[in-house]
Each structure stands twice: as C-alpha cells, then as structure tokens.
Amino acid sequence: MSRLVVRKTYKLFIGGAFPRSESGRTYDAEGANVARGSRKDVRDAVRIARQAGPGWAAMTAYNRGQVLYRVAEMMEARKDELAALSGGADEVDRAIDRVVWYAGWADKLAQVVGSANPVAGPYFNFTVPEPTGVTGILAPEPPLLGLVSRLAPVIVGGNTAVVAASEAHPLVAIEFSECLATADVPPGVINILTGLRRELAPAIAAHMDVSALDLTGADGDVAELERLGAENVKRIVRGRPDAQSPYEIASFLELKTVWHPIGM
C-alpha cells in the first residue's frame, strides 16, 4: 500500500524558529522549493544573533560544552535523515564526531589560549579569550561536514553565528537546524539562511554588526567580500573546510589582557 508522504517545507532557521523568507521567495535546489533568504533576512538574523550573544557568552564553558554535545546527540538520532541529504553516513559520522570533539574544548580553551603573563613590575597580568561577537559563515562543501567544521569552533568559543548554507545543497543544513532546535541551543545563537550566495554573502560581509567573517566557503568574489568586511574591521578567516583544531577556535576569539597592581 502506498501512502502519500507529507513533505517538509524547507525554511530558514532564525532565532530558534523556522520562518519563511520575509521576501516570500524560494529557489529550486535538490528538487525542493528552498527559502531564498534576502538582505532583510540577513538583517533579522544578525539582530537576533547580536541579542543572543551576551547570554551565550555568559553561560559557563561547561554548559556550552554540554549544549554542543547535545547537538551531537540530536545528530546521532537523525543520522539517517542527515545521511540522505549529505554525502552519506561517513560524512555524518565525521560531522557528529567533530561536534563532540569541539564540545570538549569549551572548558579548556582559556587554559590553552589564555595565559598569566610575567610582567616586569608589581602587577598581576593575565590574558583570557573572549568571543568576538556575531560571526558570518559561508558554509563550504561538503554540505554537512563543511558547515559543522566551520560552525562548531565559532560557537564553542561563545560567538553567535549567521550561516549561509550551501547554495546547491541546502537541505541538510535545514535538517541540521532541526537538530539544533531540539538540542537546547539558545534561540538566536545559530541562525542558518538558505538562498543565493550572491545575495546573502555581500549582505553579511557588509553588515556593520557582524564582527567576524568566515569565508572558507566563499566561491564568488572573495576580494569584494573582504573589502566590504574592512569597513568595520571584521576579523576575516579563510580556513580549510575540513580543519579541526583549537587554532580554528582561536581565530574567532579576542584576547583580553587585564592588569592589576600587587600591593599591600
């Protein structure tokens, strides 16, 4: 007996909800009508990401690690769906393991990246990492592993993210959003937009409230995006799609050095 399946409507993921593009537009990708995010969707996502920032950054590192680990749990539960929409089970396994790997970094970062500095004087001096802020990510291929590899280091450091999903393979990104939505990721910490890169990327790169930009997945005019990013001195990163290291996290961290006199 055949049964008519209930299809999913692929929408954006902003502020923990799944809105349609405010523009009402869609585009055809992987045989589905996928939301075609607009400049205004970028604006909304950035605003919400900015609002979510302080809360996420103020959460204890232990808690952030647990949230990330919970993301991995949710991915494991949706393994088959993710596999069907990405490069397959192997990509999903690697993506899940990557999230777990980064989850464990949350409460170790400050020890590895920070320092106590022996200055020549009666001062206690230490350096701690802090999140940069709202980070724009142009997710590289493969559509799941690329996205996760660039997103996880951004998030674990306490930043919030506005992600442009793979234009050609956006469905797995939305599937992944559903993992996020059920994994106690506070609304607005991760926002995922689908749509055309030529529309989304310049809007993200030019936004004055986006503090950092991951162009690893940029395929168009990188120079133009970097020029746009210069206007508010964005931290611009062009890494490897498959990288996994604490140095990836550090690329999206600020270092704050605090001095205090030592005296009686």
Partner: peptide, 19 residues
C-alpha cells in the same frame, strides 16, 4: 577592550599581549 587596566593605567610590558 583588549587591555583592561584595573587600578593602574598605561602600563606596558613585552610579556603582556596588547591589541
């Protein structure tokens, strides 16, 4: 801010990151 001076100001040292 990249450098916070508490109960002091404008101190610099080669061992202390600045930026």
């Amino acid at each position: 801010a990249g450098v916070v001076w508490a109960n002091t100001y404008n101190r610099f040292d080669p061992a202390s990151p600045f930026g």
